[in-house]
């Protein structure tokens, strides 16, 4: 049964990922007084990319060609490990916070290789920036996850989500509030969203994630884009499941509960996408050389969250 639920969760995240991006784009368009594209458009864009030719630069090596597979693999692992739909499933105890962090770091390291293996200055620039962001956000990632872990007494994301689902919301949300804010900082930085990166930019000099994939085309591009959407969806669902731990599927897995969990999943995804779109519509992107302010703020908030968690478990 747990295997079924694991597979269900895995494919649910995979299926929902393009829609997440579609919803964010749609809401952003609405904020700009536009109608915007249909939310199903990302699915079609993936499909059409899969059928296109690939043009690859002659200055690249075998590393360029394995990058999409490693990045996509890392995203798939995140989809399987992060409790987005159900808790207590087979992969649960593997979702140790440090393992999940390292799997995500592996993906970003390879994405950086992809940007560097082109001989293009844009790709190099994006790689340098991505590496900066990915490495400097690391302390905030581990501190905020560790404070959630101390709070819940479990070192797997699964156990953390289970603890949040089992506790009374009012009692848990106060000590966790600062940590959750830090997690949102992490979410935005890891997924190349505002204020760290502008996902909709066409100007190379303002790009981070986009600059690294400029040289990819066809199926490889589809894999990289899809990977970044999956990562966004999985992390967004993790934060949503902690902020609003209702409706997540717990054992015993009954059919009715599964249906409720599906509905809850859709609602949380929608709300999360709305929040991201709202953030992106109301703030501006930060100058890259001010990024250390963002990172230090994230770390300080995370440390504050850790202090609160420690105090709250002590009393």
């Amino acid at each position: 049964m747990t295997v079924t639920i694991l597979i269900l969760q895995f494919f649910l995240v995979l299926a929902a990922a393009p829609a997440t991006v579609g919803i964010v784009r749609k809401i952003k368009a609405r904020f700009q007084n536009r109608r915007g594209a249909r939310i199903t458009l990302p699915y079609w864009s993936l499909l059409s990319l899969l059928r296109k030719e690939m043009t690859i630069t002659r200055h690249s090596s075998w590393v360029f060609r394995i990058v999409p597979f490693v990045v996509f693999g890392s995203a798939l692992a995140l989809a399987a490990l992060i409790p987005s739909f159900a808790v207590g499933i087979l992969a649960a105890s593997m979702s140790n916070i440090f393992l999940v962090g390292a799997v995500a770091a592996l993906g970003s390291a390879f994405l950086v290789f992809g940007g560097m293996d082109t001989g293009s200055t844009f790709g190099n620039m994006g790689s340098s920036r991505e590496m900066t962001i990915a490495s400097l956000i690391e302390p905030a990632v581990y501190v905020s996850l560790a404070s959630l872990a101390t709070l819940s007494g479990s070192w797997s994301l699964d156990g953390i989500a289970l603890f949040f689902a089992a506790s009374k919301w009012v009692e848990i949300i106060l000590p966790a509030s600062l940590t959750l804010v830090a997690l949102v900082f992490v979410l935005l930085a890891e997924n190349a969203r505002y204020p760290v990166d502008n996902p909709a930019t066409h100007l190379e000099l303002t790009m981070v994630h986009e600059a690294m994939v400029l040289e990819y085309s066809g199926p490889y591009l589809a894999m990289l884009e899809y990977a970044s959407w999956i990562k966004l969806t999985a992390m967004l669902m993790l934060v949503m499941n902690l902020v609003a731990p209702w409706g997540i599927l717990t054992s015993p897995f009954a059919l009715g509960a599964t249906l409720i969990a599906l509905v809850a999943f859709a609602i949380k995804l929608g709300v999360g996408a709305f929040v991201i779109a709202f953030i992106e519509s109301t703030i501006v992107k930060m100058r890259f050389y001010r990024m250390q302010e963002y990172m230090s703020l994230a770390l300080i908030v995370a440390l504050g969250g850790l202090a609160i968690s420690l105090v709250s478990i002590a009393v």
């Binding site: 249909r38 199903t40 079609w44 059409s48």
Partner: peptide
């Protein structure tokens, strides 16, 4: 046209 519904 493409089976895709998007033109870049």
């Amino acid at each position: 046209l493409y089976g895709g519904r998007m033109l870049r």
